[in-house]
């Protein structure tokens, strides 16, 4: 009963296939979920071999490391920058793609 209550408390939908493995680990939409979605998109949209920086804490960059093995994830100054739930205030970069979960920037 406690387990069912715990699962129920993590929110609906209860019988739909989630988009990522992080979709319902908390009641609020977890930022890790949005990072996974953004990294998956970036893996398709950014040319292979390019250097990519993920704007945010180290966990977000690690998520991208696993989802973008054909790209080089770097701490800073990547050819491309992924932001999750935010924008990049750096005139050296221009927005390439914009999504609900974040943006992909390219160096000008």
């Amino acid at each position: 009963m406690a387990l069912v209550r715990h699962f129920y408390g993590l929110g609906a939908p209860y019988f739909a296939i989630p988009e990522t493995i992080q979709d319902h680990v908390s009641v609020e939409r977890p930022i890790s979920r949005d990072t996974i979605v953004m990294a998956r998109r970036a893996a398709r949209l950014i040319p292979r071999g390019a250097t990519v920086t993920v704007n945010g804490d180290w966990t977000l960059a690690n998520i991208a490391t696993g989802l973008m093995p054909k790209h080089a994830i770097v701490d800073k100054n990547g050819q491309y920058v992924i932001t999750v739930r935010g924008s990049l205030n750096d005139p050296a970069y221009a927005v390439l793609h914009e999504f609900d979960e974040g943006k992909i920037y390219v160096r000008r």
Binding site: F7, F15, Q22, D23, H24, S32, N62, G66
Partner: peptide, 17 residues
């Protein structure tokens, strides 16, 4: 597991990568 309610963060942080 299949409704993504128990996933370890470490899977995406380092075990998976």
């Amino acid at each position: 597991i299949l409704t993504a309610r128990e996933s370890a963060g470490d899977l995406h942080f380092f075990w998976g990568p």
